[in-house]
């Protein structure tokens, strides 16, 4: 992505967008940027909504894209699943320019999804959403015994972990021995 001088882009034409119309300061045209995740589905998001993400906000400030450049160069987040990025974009849109409430109950209840969301939000540096997600994870732990936590989150015990490590080392040893033997065979 090339850097150009600070863009004063105009608002994009009416297009299907996940961003609600900005209620504040309608006379100033809003800038839009584009992001995509692993599934390459491009999401159009307003600069106002993206302000929640310190990472994207920094990118926008540094790159200074014009509207056309922004459209042509969506920010790629290959490490984030499409559905997770959609969740993040939706959250940013919902909370655009608004003070964030003390709690957010619309987070995924499924632990895998929640962990993926934590990873994505941590990467994108969305402080408030990260706090909500972490609170949700913490609620899953509260009042549980170590055994219950292990079961819920599939955490191996020290003994299981040690056995798995030994097994992995054994496999690596075998593999290395195989490679040495193959190399010796080649040399002959």
């Amino acid at each position: 992505m090339s850097s150009t001088e600070q863009g004063t882009s105009s608002a994009a034409p009416a297009e299907p967008t996940t961003a609600p119309e900005s209620a504040a300061a309608p006379e100033v045209p809003e800038s839009f940027y584009y992001v995509h995740g692993k599934d390459k589905v491009v999401h159009k998001v307003s600069a106002g909504a993206l302000q929640h993400s310190a990472l994207i906000h920094g990118m926008i400030s540094n790159l200074g894209y014009t509207e056309e450049q922004a459209k042509a160069n969506p920010f790629p987040f290959e490490n984030i699943d499409g559905d997770i990025l959609q969740m993040v974009v939706d959250w940013c849109n919902q909370h655009k320019g608004k003070p964030t409430p003390p709690e957010d109950t619309n987070l995924p209840k499924q632990k895998e999804k929640l962990f993926d969301l934590v990873l994505a939000v941590n990467y994108l540096e969305i402080k408030e959403l990260l706090t909500y997600c972490c609170k949700q994870v913490a609620m899953m732990v509260k009042g549980k015994s170590p055994e219950e936590i292990r079961e819920i989150w599939m955490i191996p015990t020290d003994a299981e972990d040690e056995a798995a490590e030994k097994e992995a080392k054994k496999r690596a040893g075998k593999e290395a021995a195989g490679e040495t033997a193959a190399a010796a065979g080649d040399a002959k």
């Binding site: 895998e112 934590v118 972490c134 913490a138 989150w153």
Partner: peptide, 16 residues
Amino acid sequence: SISFLDLPGVPMKLIM
């Protein structure tokens, strides 16, 4: 899918 132990330090600390 990732497990709880894969979470980075910052969120892990926040959870704690």
